[in-house]
Simulated assay, not measured.
Amino acid sequence: MISRRVLLASAAMAAGLSGTAWAQDPVKVGFVYVGPIGDGGWTYHHNEGRLAVEDHFGDAVETTYQENVPEGADAERVLTQMALSGHDLIFTTSFGYMDPTINVAAKFPDVKFEHATGYKTADNVATYSARFYEGRAIMGHIAGKMTETNTIGYIGSFPIPEVIRGINSSFLHAKKANPDVEMKVIWAYTWFDPAKEADAAQALIDQGADVVLQHTDSTAPLAKLEEAGGYGFGQASDMSEYAPEPRISSIIDDWAPYYIARVQAVIDGTWASEETWDGIAPGMVGIGEFSEVIPEDVRAETEALKQSIASGDYHPFTGPLNKQDGSAWLAEGEVASDGDLLGMDFYLEGIAGEIPN
């Protein structure tokens, strides 16, 4: 289908107008957020990417966004409204938007959609995600070195492969750093709910955890850790207002370069459905500054781990590794395939508890 910009250009030329006598419509780009923009966390950094698009393209691009959109029927309604209102490209930024994105995209084949962290694609639907497990490995190493109780905690959002990978990677590298480490996992069943996150953090503290990792988006766990004298990490953004402690480092999502590249592809007419999964090396996963609370030798070890992952010399899931039930998963020196990681639905050996259905 010919775009409205091409039609406008053709009409201008047919009327004998010069190339400077007509203004090309801006590319209209929409963003759908599962939580509030706020001042940190997952949605905040997706919105930072949106702002980077505006800064980069200026008047050539118009962006819109909708925040606090529940995953489900409401998402489908919001996406339909965006498609009907002339958006050329729509980014849907949460796993639970996957089916609504696919459903709406089928009704609007001339609109391009990009879904974050999902696995379903179509001719007009691309997917993108970050290899968060690389950053979780680094946070896990720090956690293993910093715990004094030998108990670390993890606040999970939903029991999907992305979150399970992070739990496994964190535990594996905490255990390598400190063989005496145990991990407690609490599922909050939310991406963003400060009250639930605070309750989860307190429950982990009550179980003896003095270092807590999280795959939820608010700073509420850090506030609880500050009260208790424990340590935690910024999630999806630096959360540096809690540095130097309890926030001792962070895993940071940098979506801006990806968003700029994909909008440019729409402008150039080269956009195609692709599956992108980038990590530390391309910069999609960033690691926040190591707090001075962390001993100098641990900071050096952690930096070395980061560099080995970035260079490709080390993969966080390298065998020998067993599943929780003791069955073999990866042999000595064997590296997990992307397919295995994308479908991960099991805990590694040594993690207590069950993954909820």
Rank of each mutant, 00 (worst) to 15 (best):
residue 2 I to V: 15
residue 4 R to Y: 14
residue 4 R to K: 15
residue 6 V to N: 14
residue 10 S to A: 15
residue 11 A to E: 14
residue 17 L to C: 03
residue 26 P to F: 07
residue 28 K to Y: 13
residue 29 V to S: 11
residue 34 V to Q: 02
residue 47 N to T: 03
residue 48 E to M: 12
residue 50 R to C: 03
residue 51 L to T: 06
residue 55 D to Y: 13
residue 63 T to M: 06
residue 64 T to I: 14
residue 64 T to N: 12
residue 64 T to V: 14
residue 66 Q to H: 09
residue 66 Q to R: 12
residue 66 Q to M: 09
residue 70 P to E: 07
residue 73 A to R: 10
residue 75 A to W: 09
residue 77 R to G: 08
residue 79 L to F: 15
residue 88 D to L: 11
residue 89 L to P: 11
residue 92 T to R: 05
residue 92 T to W: 06
residue 94 S to E: 08
residue 95 F to N: 00
residue 96 G to D: 03
residue 98 M to F: 06
residue 98 M to E: 14
residue 109 P to L: 13
residue 117 T to R: 01
residue 121 T to C: 10
residue 122 A to H: 08
residue 124 N to V: 14
residue 127 T to G: 07
residue 129 S to W: 14
residue 130 A to Q: 12
residue 132 F to T: 08
residue 133 Y to S: 01
residue 135 G to P: 10
residue 146 M to I: 10
residue 147 T to G: 00
residue 150 N to S: 04
residue 154 Y to Q: 00
residue 156 G to H: 05
residue 156 G to P: 03
residue 157 S to F: 07
residue 161 P to W: 03
residue 165 R to M: 05
residue 166 G to F: 03
residue 167 I to Y: 02
residue 170 S to D: 02
residue 173 H to P: 05
residue 174 A to T: 02
residue 177 A to E: 01
residue 179 P to W: 00
residue 180 D to T: 02
residue 180 D to F: 03
residue 185 V to L: 08
residue 188 A to M: 07
residue 190 T to H: 13
residue 193 D to M: 12
residue 200 A to M: 09
residue 201 A to W: 09
residue 203 A to E: 12
residue 207 Q to K: 05
residue 209 A to C: 02
residue 215 H to C: 05
residue 220 A to S: 04
residue 222 L to E: 02
residue 226 E to A: 15
residue 231 Y to S: 00
residue 234 G to P: 00
residue 236 A to G: 00
residue 237 S to K: 01
residue 239 M to E: 08
residue 240 S to I: 12
residue 243 A to I: 05
residue 246 P to N: 08
residue 246 P to H: 10
residue 246 P to F: 10
residue 247 R to V: 12
residue 248 I to M: 06
residue 253 D to H: 11
residue 258 Y to Q: 03
residue 260 I to Q: 05
residue 260 I to L: 11
residue 263 V to K: 02
residue 264 Q to G: 12
residue 266 V to Y: 11
residue 266 V to S: 08
residue 272 A to L: 13
residue 273 S to V: 04
residue 275 E to N: 14
residue 276 T to L: 15
residue 276 T to S: 13
residue 277 W to H: 08
residue 277 W to V: 07
residue 278 D to P: 02
residue 278 D to V: 12
residue 280 I to F: 06
residue 287 I to D: 00
residue 287 I to F: 02
residue 287 I to N: 00
residue 287 I to G: 01
residue 290 F to H: 07
residue 293 V to W: 06
residue 294 I to H: 07
residue 295 P to G: 10
residue 301 E to D: 07
residue 302 T to E: 07
residue 305 L to T: 02
residue 311 S to Q: 07
residue 311 S to C: 06
residue 314 Y to K: 12
residue 325 D to M: 05
residue 329 W to D: 03
residue 329 W to E: 03
residue 330 L to S: 02
residue 330 L to I: 04
residue 332 E to C: 06
residue 333 G to F: 06
residue 336 A to L: 10
residue 338 D to R: 07
residue 339 G to E: 15
residue 347 Y to G: 06
